[in-house]
Design a protein around this nucleic acid. Structure first.
Lengths: 229, 229, 229, 229
DNA sequence: GATGAATGAGTGTTCATTCAT
DNA sequence: AATGAATGAACACTCATTCAT
């Protein structure tokens, strides 16, 4: 079960409300949210424990009380993040949708998740800079396979059966392509915006990008002529 | 102009040869190479000035003498890196190739660059974590537009004229997609390998990935039925 | 009055039995015993209040409730310890023994106390490192003179009268010598064992040491030739 | 070879003279001396790195530069201390002295060393509290056997041959007894002074103590009647 | 040009103690 | 009586940078 908070990003952005004293669960949650923001904005190495505590409105000691140390706190943030995305992915119900519509929805969901959770990408980049050191320690995360791969496989099978999708498509590769076309756009939004002298973060630019990715995926998936022949 | 060194990666991997004393250019180059490795492996915040100097076999003071400070050194590394990739991109001559073959070659070059320059991606991630702060200061980099966008535009035009490529394709979007499908794979190779319990860094896995990206791009670019009709 | 516990060492070693809730005396005693062990093993500065509470199976707050603070707890441990040794010393009844046998017994008791109360020495070392700061605050301890000095004086008088002990022996100095020859052996058992590359803590080594000290004391106390003449 | 400094204590007590900047050897030595004082006064756990640096008039960073960390600094102090005492012991030349005079001199030297080096005992106590952890790491110290044991053996042999010393005396045990009778006096000077309500640290008290120890040792070593018979 | 010693602000972490229940 | 969360000062240690030679 995921927390009732709408998204990780919303939770993180929420100002720590004054909070009556002595609410351990609340303190813990506020530290976790503050850590999410700090780690995402500064990276694991650039993040400051003091800053996290300050942002959480908590005593620094509590951070160590609840999470052990900076690295374990980072892992906790990572777990919470994977928890969130996996939960939202699982909530996608594409079984009843037509293959093309389902694939479109999946791509748009994937892209949309990045826009609604701007901290997600930075967190993953930090984890990869550290060679997935924390993630590898977490049996919990390792078990959370993305349901998207299975969903893609199902859509492909149904689409191929209906003659609307090409054959010989690896669902894992396609999953990575869908993710990558959106991820890279946001991950490198600052350098790309600088190089192209244009703000790629505007809603309009994002919408154009999303449309393009859908086009690429659906264009690629079109049946091959001789297959139909 | 790029340095005579074969590739950034090779330069970085090269052991600093004993070097006769008092060779300013050599000292400077060794510091730059050591910095590339350190920044790529640890990120801007995780990198240690001492380590760079040690790896370069140089005195720490020289680092400040030649590059001012850590941030400026990072910028120098960044400029050298863009210098390299832009140079190699420019060396791609696709004008004489058939559109499909040219596009295939472009995609393979893009993907291949990541494999030959493993530090490139990490460096860009660091720069984006810091909101392109250094890149924005560098007029030099800002002027280095990737010739790939223009090359893609040219291929598209020629392919469309020949009826082998679809219409209504934005070269910038396509450029980002091609880059993203490869970039994300390497950028997140550690988390993806962990999640999928497979080593995505093997030559075989990379080859499969490259082939898939080519398939996606060329599959997407196929003309649309009614367009041809 | 001493506590009913057999010895300080035994008390310390005793596992805190499950203990029904709400047994103030028991809680207090367990904290005191846990503190004895922790202070002896780590010293006053190295001891951790958390560790004492954990070892006592008590809440940390109780520690402050019963003993005020860490320093006062240390003093309480010290008082309990002096309480114990003074009580045992007083239980030595040498009045009816022959001087030589009495002196032998006194020396053996003194040495044996260290072996049976391994925490005693470490505690005294801590107190001396802190210049007897706590002990000086304790009127109770200051009044507990060791009955051993008086016993030595009595044995000396009786032995001199019987011609078996030399004259001009200061009971306080002899008391310190007897204590010192054993104390130093245990206090420095780790460095001495390392330097001499032998384990001085074995029962055999201790027995040899005790025999030697008896020899030194009795050898020293032999009447001087011309005295008897 | 020992440093030309008269004694460890003197060196430690010396005020760090202003010292022209940029004198690495001097800086290192001052840190070592300041550490000796701090560790002796507060113990390993009570000692503060900041305080050592301040006392040395050095930057804290230098302490880590030269000695690695607090524990290694403690070991360095320990090595310096053993270096000093072993050197002074070796400088005792008792070969040409008559056995009784030589033994007296040895006992007085041993006791005197404690008075001239008040930090020595506290340091050893700290090391023993930590179970000789540092000493065991130091091959250098482990090889420094005290020449006193050999000297005692030699004196015993010569004295026994001359009929002035008893037989069956273990030189190691006697060494420990001589050391212990002085060590304990100083190690526990604060508690003993408190208990006996007298300042045992005065020169007069020390002189009386030294005389007593000589009496005990020489008294013990007197030949046994029947041995001479 | 080149070196290595020196610096001070900060970094993650720990601790004895107190507050609220 | 008893609990566990909360606190702020301090702790060992690190870092990018500069000084003196």
């Amino acid at each position: 079960m995921r927390s009732p908070v709408a998204t990780v990003a919303e939770a993180a952005g929420a100002a720590p409300r004054p909070a009556e004293r002595r609410d351990p669960a609340r303190t813990r949650a506020q530290i976790l949210e503050a850590a999410l923001v700090e780690f995402a904005q500064k990276g694991l190495d650039g993040a400051r424990v003091d800053q996290i505590a300050a942002r959480a409105g908590a005593n620094k000691r509590m951070l160590y009380h609840y999470f052990g140390n900076k690295e374990d706190l980072f892992l906790a943030v990572l777990e919470r993040t994977y928890d969130d995305i996996r939960g939202r992915e699982a909530a996608l119900h594409l079984e009843d949708m037509a293959p093309v519509a389902g694939m479109r929805r999946l791509v748009e969901f994937s892209f949309g998740y990045y826009t609604r959770n701007p901290y997600f990408i930075s967190l993953l980049n930090s984890e990869n800079l550290h060679r997935a050191r924390h993630l590898r320690r977490s049996a919990r995360i390792r078990q959370m396979h993305s349901p998207l791969v299975h969903m893609i496989g199902d859509l492909l099978r149904r689409g191929q059966a209906a003659g609307v999708f090409r054959r010989d498509v690896d669902p894992v590769q396609l999953y990575i392509s869908i993710a990558g076309m959106g991820y890279f756009y946001f991950s490198n939004v600052h350098t790309l915006s600088t190089i192209f002298a244009a703000d790629l973060a505007t809603p309009e630019a994002c919408a154009r990008r999303a449309a393009h990715i859908v086009e690429v995926v659906l264009g690629y998936l079109r049946p091959i002529d001789w297959e139909g022949g």
